[in-house]
Design a protein around this nucleic acid. Sequence first.
DNA 1: TAAACGTGGAG
DNA 2: TCTCCAAGTTT
Length: 355
Amino acid sequence: MRYPMDEAALQARLLEWYDVNARSFPWRVPPGSGRRADPYAVWLSEIMLQQTTTAAVRPYFEAFMARWQDVNALAAADDGEVMAAWAGLGYYARARNLLKCARVVAQEHGGRFPDQYDALLKLPGIGPYTAAAIAAIAFDRPAVVVDGNVERVMARLHCVEDPLPDAKPLLKAHAARLTPRKRPGDHAQALMDLGATICAVKSPTCPLCPWQADCRARTAGMAEALPRRVAKAVKPLRLGHVHIGQRADGAWLLERRPPRGLLGGMLGWPGSEWQEGEFPDAQPPAKGRWRCAGAEVRHTFTHFHLRLMVHVARLPADSAPARGFFLPAADFRPSDLPSVMRKAFNIARKALAAD
DNA sequence: TAAACGTGGAG
DNA sequence: TCTCCAAGTTT
């Protein structure tokens, strides 16, 4: 016989814990401050935090807030500048959708974010999690916020042994039953803080948990083993070339990648397709004395490993490339590149410096 | 529905 | 070195 959980008691103990232990972030308002977070800051942080750690997000969030202080400023921003500011954070569709969303909010909602889950869900880049998070955190609506942390906490609290992702609907139902009418924003953030600190993926510190007496996985000695997941597919290895050319005046030969797909909309070096099995033929983007840089890029994306052979050349002042464009040295910042392209640049820089 | 979509830190 | 995976969304 399993006794029903006392939701009211769980809610109360969680908020008590949060009032004392809430983490501090630049996008967050402390509990009990009586203030409500700026919806723009909540939205921006939630988009950045999708599948991304708080440590990685923090400097990007600060930079975006300093440069584009509200949704109207962001809506008016140059696409290339926003993509450059996002460079290194990954999942670049988020940046493309961020701009789309800012422009919809500015043009169709008078520069104010909708305060309802259903309206938020219609905006580009906002899915079920983010719509609920904004509704709860920015507008204190009792939306059911379910991210990876909440799934893990629910799986352990209720000892759900079905593996993810199949268990998602059940875990969401558990989360829904626990969502309070009062302080739903703090409740959501408390649940995520609990998952990020106490109820961690590895080595959870159950003795510090406000729910230790209620947690069925802890009782069963299974907390760390949950949630289970279906095994992931092995990543194949893809091979390719990049060509990094510098003109006599210092300008670099770059290209803007297509607006969709991998690294879509980002700056990058001209190169080959990336294929499995063997290296494709190297086709330099401009005439010149190309040579191997002597090291290759190793990089892992979500669904494949990549090795890139790096080719470098010094190009003449009258170089007429078949693809790409020359970016003056003064306008080129390696930090504007996605990480894989920055790795290639670091290899090329050393090779060219050795000339 | 399942695959595509980045990156860096932790163990 | 290598696997896991973090505040998910889109197609």
